[in-house]
Design a protein around this nucleic acid. Structure first.
Lengths: 111, 111
DNA sequence: CTTGTTTATCGTTTTTATACGATAATGCAA
DNA sequence: TTGCATTATCGTATAAAAACGATAAACAAG
């Protein structure tokens, strides 16, 4: 009975929802904070900081990468991640566009 | 094997993640748009608009209500929903605070 | 070449989300 | 009171997310 009927919504709604889902887990927010602090992109240091197993952290990194929020390259045996600032700005402005559009109405809470 | 270890992260991360999760589904974004357009709070009209069953829409409305993004009151046999603008502003500023804090670093993408 | 380090992926388990039909509950109208 | 419309909840099924151990792959160093 087909869970997930997301196809039947507009592309904007889908993109925004996907973005939101990418940051809908505290671990992924924490990862973004770490990556933003240390501009020299980190890899296994994230595993040290987060209270999660290495495999789990790798999974979250993959999710963030697939959402386009971070870049990742392999450098030798290590992996180097960093924030994709361009996508990040798009992300933020998409959110604010949505919020502002919603607020264009008269903002009368009837209940 | 305990899925969900969210307790081990900071409260801010958790709150933000919860907010993001609330809008991480296109149906819920669509609901917010409908509610913002029609300031006279709607109820079953949302069911007409969305390509989802009544029970599913009710579930999404419940999720948005529990996240604090909308208010809901029963008026007779019908239910009246509308956006909680105060919570919505908090939501938006939380997001922008996070984004701006992240962008305080030098924004050098190393990979 | 072998060893050790680092990280991604696989397989699995548990939990949560999504979706819907059916039903219950609520109150309006006749 | 009886019926009708509206909506929330229950039960259930399927899919996705979250977490981890184990393993494989890639490479540096010896």
């Amino acid at each position: 009975m087909a869970a997930h009927k997301t196809d039947e919504f507009g592309k904007k709604e889908q993109d925004l929802a996907a973005f939101a889902k990418a940051i809908s887990h505290p671990a992924r927010i924490a990862i973004l904070k770490v990556l933003a602090q240390r501009n020299e992109c980190i890899c296994g240091e994230i595993v040290e900081i987060l209270p999660l197993a290495q495999a789990t952290v790798s999974q979250h990194l993959k999710a963030l990468k697939e959402a386009g929020l971070i870049n990742g390259t392999v450098s030798g045996p290590k992996s180097c991640y960093c924030i994709n600032w361009e996508a990040f700005d798009n992300f933020q402005s998409s959110f604010n566009t949505l919020f502002d559009k919603l607020k264009n109405s008269n903002q009368k809470s009837c209940c």
